[in-house]
Structure formats: C-alpha cells, structure tokens
Amino acid sequence: EDYYQILGVPRNASQKEIKKAYYQLAKKYHPDTNKDDPKAKEKFSQLAEAYEVLSDEVKRKQYDA
C-alpha cells in the first residue's frame, strides 16, 4: 500500500504536512482510544510505518525511487 495514501498527503508533501497528518491520524486510530475496533491497531501500525519512512529524508528518497 502507498505510504502517501495511508497518511493522506500528496507525494510532494512537506515534512511539516507529513508530521501533521501523522499526528492527526495517530490520535484518531490509537489503540487506546479504539479498544473495541480490532482494525485500529493494524491501521495505527501502518501509519507508524508510513511515517517512519516518509519522515526520514533518506528513507523517503529510497521509497520514492
């Protein structure tokens, strides 16, 4: 799945936009606030993985290549 789609940001998003999108979605899908939703944990880990790659310039360049 596309990391940009997961975070809901365009491919040319700035680091600030990526961070903002991640924090909004992380708050929304955090397992502690969605105890009754088994998919929230999965969504949250996808968000974390996408953010880890896109927030790191080197990893992001490799991902975009």
Score class of each variant (00 low, 15 high):
53 V>P: 00
32 D>H: 09
54 L>H: 00
49 E>I: 14
51 Y>N: 02
32 D>Q: 09
57 E>C: 08
33 T>E: 12
34 N>K: 06
49 E>F: 07
38 P>G: 06
42 E>L: 13
13 A>G: 03
21 A>L: 03
8 G>N: 10
32 D>E: 12
5 Q>A: 12
59 K>D: 02
3 Y>R: 02
33 T>L: 13
2 D>T: 09
3 Y>M: 04
13 A>T: 04
24 Q>I: 15
44 F>K: 03
45 S>Y: 13
28 K>L: 14
38 P>R: 06
12 N>T: 13
4 Y>L: 01
39 K>S: 12
44 F>Q: 05
61 K>L: 07
56 D>A: 02
3 Y>N: 02
59 K>V: 03
19 K>S: 15
9 V>K: 01
41 K>W: 15
48 A>E: 10
35 K>W: 09
17 E>D: 14
59 K>H: 04
61 K>S: 06
30 H>A: 09
21 A>S: 05
63 Y>L: 03
26 A>S: 11
59 K>I: 03
29 Y>F: 12
60 R>E: 01
38 P>C: 06
35 K>E: 08
52 E>P: 02
47 L>M: 07
60 R>P: 01
22 Y>N: 01
39 K>T: 13
64 D>P: 02
23 Y>D: 11
41 K>P: 11
54 L>E: 00
25 L>W: 05
51 Y>P: 00
33 T>K: 11
19 K>V: 15
2 D>K: 04
38 P>T: 08
4 Y>V: 00
2 D>W: 05
22 Y>I: 01
17 E>F: 08
48 A>L: 13
3 Y>I: 03
46 Q>M: 13
49 E>Y: 08
6 I>S: 04
12 N>H: 09
8 G>S: 06
9 V>N: 00
2 D>N: 13
26 A>W: 15
5 Q>K: 14
2 D>G: 06
55 S>G: 15
60 R>Q: 01
62 Q>G: 06
52 E>C: 10
63 Y>V: 03
34 N>D: 07
54 L>Q: 00
60 R>N: 02
54 L>W: 01
51 Y>Q: 01
55 S>D: 04
2 D>V: 04
15 Q>C: 07
64 D>V: 02
31 P>H: 10
54 L>C: 02
51 Y>M: 05
38 P>H: 07
57 E>H: 07
40 A>I: 14
65 A>M: 13
26 A>N: 06
10 P>H: 12
15 Q>K: 11
64 D>S: 02
3 Y>Q: 01
19 K>R: 15
45 S>P: 04
50 A>T: 02
16 K>R: 12
24 Q>P: 04
25 L>V: 04
65 A>R: 07
46 Q>N: 09
28 K>A: 10
6 I>F: 05
27 K>I: 15
4 Y>I: 00
39 K>H: 14
